[in-house]
Amino acid sequence: MPTNLLALNWKMNKTPSEARAWVGELTAQLPATAAELAIMAPAIALPAVAAELQGSALAIGGQDVSAHESGAYTGEISAAMLRDVGATYVIVGHSERRTYHAETSQVVAGKAAATIAGGLVPIVCVGEGLDVREKGEHVAYTLDQLRDSLAQVSLEGAHQLVIAYEPVWAIGTGKTATAQDAEELAAAIREALRGLYRDYADDVRILYGGSVKPGNIAEICTQPNVNGALVGGASLDVASVVGMAAALV
């Protein structure tokens, strides 16, 4: 079974100086854990985070990436730029990007392909809103979104994938899908990945994201097809991150 990944998505929080101080505080308190930790910081803070983590086992990653390798794309950041500052991962297609920036699954597919071509691991996000879940269409909706978002990822690129299932209705709301809800979708995603990538699918890590905290992370991540968490709000608090890392033994 793949190692659990705890991806800490800071979203638009922490200046570079705040980020460096926070990371210093975390590394001084971080317990032994079986999970891999990755700090998904704002792009402007990544060099400061990388400097503070030098010699550490913790990874860093971006929160978004361009589908383009380089060129006249003002404000965008390429996979090569992220890799050059030490990034390993990048979040692709987060629900906030899909909602606030009108990113379609076709756009997400281009970003996922560019991420892999650029030598990074994409954390491809999929998940449904409350209206879809209340209609009982959450599995079909999420799997359609998954297939469309991976349309440009080849069989050869599949071993570099991470998928994050994020029920949109549980992000930042305090509502949390149950461990059984998380496993239902993770198992469906795993089966869909087998249809796309055959045996590679068993090595793809599937994360759960949506109001994850120290009190529920262990139950969620011990489900057969859940291999970690994409953490939002709780990732900003050192004590919460320490608690989550300690729970994943």
Rank of each mutant, 00 (worst) to 15 (best):
L82T: 00
I123C: 03
E134W: 11
A109Y: 00
E96L: 06
V153R: 02
G127L: 08
V132Y: 10
A109D: 01
R133T: 04
G157V: 06
R83T: 12
Q145W: 05
R97W: 07
Q160H: 12
A170V: 08
V107R: 09
R97K: 11
V162S: 02
L150R: 03
V126C: 06
M81G: 08
W169T: 02
T99D: 13
L155K: 12
V153Q: 02
A151G: 11
T99A: 15
R147T: 13
G174Y: 10
G110V: 02
D84K: 03
A114Q: 03
A151K: 08
T88N: 14
L143K: 10
V90A: 05
D131P: 09
A112E: 00
V121I: 11
L155Q: 15
M81F: 10
P167I: 06
L120T: 00
D84V: 10
V108N: 04
V168P: 01
D84R: 07
D144H: 13
D148T: 14
R83A: 13
D131I: 13
P167M: 06
G118K: 05
K135I: 11
V132E: 09
A109S: 08
G93L: 00
R98H: 04
H101L: 15
G93P: 06
E137D: 11
P167L: 05
Y165E: 02
V121T: 11
K111G: 06
E166W: 06
L146C: 04
G86E: 10
K111Q: 07
A158I: 02
H94F: 06
T88Q: 14
E156N: 15
Q160V: 15
I123G: 01
D144G: 10
G127F: 08
S149T: 07
E134C: 13
T104F: 09
E166D: 11
V92S: 01
A87T: 12
H101T: 11
V168D: 03
G119A: 11
Y89F: 13
V126T: 10
T104D: 09
I116W: 00
Y89R: 07
Q152P: 10
L120K: 00
H159A: 14
T88P: 15
E137T: 14
